[in-house]
């Protein structure tokens, strides 16, 4: 095993180009487990800790450019208003110690369906900035997950940043685990209201081979909200609509039975989380509307 220690992004890209089998390691919270337990012996470890700009973020007009290695703790502490869904998701990651090391780049690189960030990224809308010595490209998050623990990266590419749409409405995130802290998701659900475009987006974790959106459920809800004039009248969402939405979210799952939970439970739980997160976000949207109307 060789340990590559690039001091800059350019050096990192060059190293990855030269050794496409090199395994990038940043927070180490996935890679080191595999090494400690003898599950993986990569030829090269590519340490990204010295690439400083991976730890930075910039808030632009419409998006946040989040460096791949920005630790979850920083997201929780600093980006709660811009990226509320991801901030909530970050808070559910493992333990404080892990949140101090791990970042979204690792979740994307591993592309485990259980990665906590995925549902929040899917719901918010995001693009992955991937780069190699050949150049840089933006991969829409919807196209990023290609299979169980597989992603759209080319062997010579590294994840530099994620461009995430700034929240234009309430966002929520829920995760079911069989412990009240430090737990891997049995399943997870992210939901974002986008009042600007009058759309709702979702993300489901750990209930299909890849993280997925519940697009049929989104389409249903978008149409129902439009039809009922909900975005304008700010009424409580009809229980039958919420129920149908929850059912469609559950139907979007394609889960398995494993030691963490049954497929049937995952479907059920995603439905419950979908209904609850919709209620929470919609209540928050209505509250914000009333406040702004009152101010006006």
């Amino acid at each position: 095993m060789d340990f590559l220690r690039p001091a800059s992004w350019e050096e990192a890209l060059a190293a990855k180009a030269e050794h496409p089998s090199a395994v990038p390691i940043a927070g180490g919270t996935d890679v080191m487990v595999e090494i400690n337990f003898d599950h993986r012996r990569p030829e090269y470890l590519l340490d990204l800790n010295r690439v400083a700009d991976l730890y930075e973020w910039e808030t632009g007009e419409d998006t946040v450019r989040l460096g791949a290695s920005v630790p979850y703790t920083k997201i929780m502490e600093n980006l709660r208003s811009e990226l509320p869904g991801l901030a909530l998701a970050s808070h559910t990651v493992a333990s404080p110690q892990i949140r101090n090391r791990g970042g979204v780049g690792g979740n994307l690189g591993t592309a485990s369906p259980a990665g906590d960030a995925h549902p929040a990224l899917l719901a918010a809308g995001a693009e992955v900035e991937a780069e190699s010595v050949r150049g840089s490209r933006r991969i829409p998050i919807d196209d990023f997950y290609t299979g169980v623990k597989r992603n759209a990266l080319a062997p010579d590419e590294l994840i530099r940043a994620v461009h995430i749409k700034k929240a234009d409405g309430p966002q929520q995130y829920s995760k079911v685990g069989t412990r009240n802290a430090m737990v891997i998701a049995v399943c997870a659900f992210g939901l974002a209201l986008h009042p600007g475009t009058r759309t709702v987006r979702t993300g489901i974790g750990s209930a299909a081979p890849t993280p997925v959106r519940a697009t049929v459920a989104e389409d249903f809800l978008n149409a129902a909200l439009e039809e009922g004039g909900f975005w304008d009248n700010g009424k409580i969402i009809t229980p039958s609509v919420a129920k149908e939405f929850a059912g469609l979210c559950a139907a979007a799952c394609n889960p398995i039975d494993d030691v963490r939970g049954t497929a049937s439970y995952r479907r059920h739980a995603v439905g419950v989380m979908a209904r609850r997160t919709l209620t929470w976000t919609w209540e928050s949207y209505r509250g914000a509307r009333r406040t702004s109307e009152g101010a006006a």
């Binding site: 909530l88 808070h91 995130y173 829920s174 995760k175 079911v176 009240n180 737990v183 609850r276």
Partner: peptide, 12 residues
Amino acid sequence: PGGLSNTTHGEG
């Protein structure tokens, strides 16, 4: 129940 995973705000 659910703790930091934010699964309920009292519902159920």
